[in-house]
Every structure is written in structure tokens, then in C-alpha cells.
Design a protein around this nucleic acid. Sequence first.
DNA 1: GCAAAATTGTTGCACCGGCAATCGACATTC
DNA 2: GAATGTCGATTGCCGGTGCAACAATTTTGC
Lengths: 231, 231
Amino acid sequence: MNLRPYYPILRGTSLLRGMRDDELDKMLDCFAPRVRRYQKGEFLMLAGYETREVGILLEGSITALKNTPDGSSVAITEMSTGGLFGDVLSGSSTKSPVSVMAQTDCLAVYLPYDKIIHPCAHLHESHLQLLQNLVLTISNKYFALDRRVELLICKSLRVRISLWLLEQADEAGQDTFAVPLTRAGLAEYLNCDRSALSRELGRMQREGLIETFRGSFKILDKERLRSQCQE
Amino acid sequence: MNLRPYYPILRGTSLLRGMRDDELDKMLDCFAPRVRRYQKGEFLMLAGYETREVGILLEGSITALKNTPDGSSVAITEMSTGGLFGDVLSGSSTKSPVSVMAQTDCLAVYLPYDKIIHPCAHLHESHLQLLQNLVLTISNKYFALDRRVELLICKSLRVRISLWLLEQADEAGQDTFAVPLTRAGLAEYLNCDRSALSRELGRMQREGLIETFRGSFKILDKERLRSQCQE
DNA sequence: GCAAAATTGTTGCACCGGCAATCGACATTC
DNA sequence: GAATGTCGATTGCCGGTGCAACAATTTTGC
């Protein structure tokens, strides 16, 4: 299959960031990646299985699901076009802790990990960049998870919310920002009950710390918000 | 400095696992690693700084400390001879979330990340193995953290303890095992109060689920323990 | 444009678990 | 042997937060 139409997408991924057309040509020729189309609801990856491929989403969107100890499953992440999955997994011999499901009809391409990790002599420059990107990608996921842990170990909900708000503001570069999360989703990320989150956000609003509307947040008193975290 | 005496240690690390003497000779010659000795209490790495080196501990032991939002710092990990640090960090451009302190006098060697990620043509086989090991090492750290998150998001202490016990038993391969953790340390890992941990362990003991003494645990009723996790 | 579904806010209640204080067991040091 | 420090267990208190139920509002599907 001709992947040229998807080069802009591939270039946008953290794995293939900034690669030129001719570089992608060469690499994809060498990788001989498989491409597959999925219908909404189909699984791209099943929890409990190993994989030796890095998946890149070319069309549509997917959800990563984690099986809870009690048999059901909860959404962990959502990804849209350009999303990478299986990247951390393929380098290890661990069984996948997540399943990946097609949220809409979608199209994915899979790069064999062995080919990624074994640079062919003639690919040189771009392949080395690829390796660096792979490590970078995995490292970044590690640190994202690490920040999550840092949130989770904070005992009071007030602190978790405050830390999260400050982090988001920092990421957005301004004190007003919006996130694509419902209250329920945010509550899950912060590991608390939805009603408790509402309650606490309400309190913080009454105290003049923040303003919220749906997914929009505005930090009114950053200093005081920071001081909330120290308790 | 001649590193030959330390080859057995290097070979024991996840990064240089199983490398032959001649392979280590060639690689270390190419890496031109720096070696440094530290006195107890000195810092090998400071939170907030970037690093482009992977450190390997040749002698002594170290502690990784994380600065809490309120200014103090808590121990995260301890490592002894053969320990790897800075591995996840060096591949990313993130500032270190941890400081690393010498717990005893110690000796460390640092491999420049750039050299690791840019294989020289003539090193071939062993260097490719090295790359694979690097990715594997980082991936494994990711999954260890992921399991930690899985623990932390469980709401009740009873569930967190049960999951941890089952995981440890699984890792040990038997239902009786010992861990090098004090109650306070375990409480910190499970993110709960030490007294609460004692209380719950006591309850579980009275219910005939487990037996504990200091760092030793014995699972008496695995089935019932599993069923605890579903609530 | 209407009904159904999703999202958010609110509130009362119960209870888990954090906190602080105390005790006993044991090891270490002088 | 006394003094000191570390570690685990126990207990009473009470505040934070999970839970359930309901209302208000927005979004979605037809």
C-alpha cells in the first residue's frame, strides 16, 4: 500500500518527527510495514498478549482500555490520528496491560520493532534519529506516568486538584485553559468521586481561587493555589 | 581508568547484560566514560537538572530522593552496586524529578548518551544489543510504574494490600515470602498511614487470610484474598 | 424540534482511614 | 544496666470523601 498520502501524519508523530519524504520512503521500504483497517469496536491490541510492532494511527481514533481486577474495563487514554501505541510494549517482553479498541472506523500501520532496533547500514542518519525518537517517546511516557503518580500520592483531594490545575496552566502557558475532559473523566484521572470533585471545585470557586465552566478553567490566585499544595 | 575489574558488575546490569570482555573493551574504549568517586552524602545527580549520561554504580549504594511540593524530600528508591540511574532521563530533555545521593561512599561510571544512541559502524553486534537493552530497561521501568499506579488507584486499603500481597507472592513464586521493607516503607509504597496498615494487616490476620511477622508474609487463603480485590 | 441520553451540580449520610499519642519489644551505645 | 533509638501494634477521635439520589442543564439522535 502506498503510504505517501499519510506522510504528513507520520511526520507529525513523535516517532517520525520531521522526517523528509525521501527518508520516509527509504525507511518504510526497509520496514515493509503492514497496514490494516478496523471497524468501530474492533480491537487493535488485546491485553495479555505480547507485541513486537509499533502501531501508528493513520485514520480515526482509538481508546486504550485497562482490565480492572474485577473483570470490567476502564478507559485509560484516547488517541486520534497520529497516535502511537505499542511503543513501550514492543521493546519489552511484557504482556500488554491494556487493550486498544477502535473508537471509530480507523486505519493503522505497524512498524516491526526488530527492524527499528536493528539499523541497516544504508539508512544511517534518519534511522538514528528514529532510534533517538523512540527512546524519547518512551521516556516521555514514563515521565507522564511519573507525574500521575505524584498526583495520586497526594492525600487530600484539594491538593490533587491544585497540583493538576497548576500543571495544566504551566503546560498551556497561561492561566486560562480548556481540557477535553468531562468531569467524570477528570475525576477518574484524579482518582476521586465525581461528586467530590464537583464539591471541591465549587468550594475553590467560592474561595476565589479559580473559575470553572465545563472544561474551561481559569486560575484567579496562583499564589494561593500553590500554597494549597503544601498541606 | 581501567574498568576491567568491574566487568562482572557491568555484565550484571540490565544495560550491559551478558556482554563479553572483548565487547566491553571495544565499547568502553569508544564511549570514553568518565568515572567518579563520591563520599557518603554527596549528590550524584540533582533534581531540576538535565543529564545526557547514563550512570552505573560500581561500588556502594545510592538513594533516589524526590522533592515534595512542600520543600522536603522523600526516598523513592535505593540501589546498590550494579544499579542504573539517569537511564530514562538521559534520552529525554526533561529535568530530573529526582536527586540521587550517595548512601555510602561510592563509585560510578557515566556513559554518554549520545554515544549510546549513535552506534559506530565497527561496534555492530554488541552495540545493537546495547540499544535493545536500553529500550528494554526503560520499558521495564515504565511497567513497574504502571503497576504502582494500578495499586494506587484502588480506593480501599484492603484492596491495595491484597493486590500487593498477590503480586509479591507471584514474583516470589511461592505463598511465603519476605520483603526488605519496614512497615513505614510499605505504608509509603501503598500510600497509606503506617498505623492504618498495621490495623488492616491485623484484621486480615484475624480473618485467617494471612500471617505476618516483620517483613515476612504468608498467604493462607489465596482464593479469598483474590476475592478481596473485587470490592 | 422533541425526546432520550449525557453531563454537571447539590446534598445527606456513613464510614474509611489519617492523625496523634501510647505501649511493648528489641537493638545499640556508653 | 541505664539510656536512647527504631520498629510494630493499638486505640480514640473526627474530617474528608465515597456513595446514592435527585435536579438542572446541555447535547445527541431521529
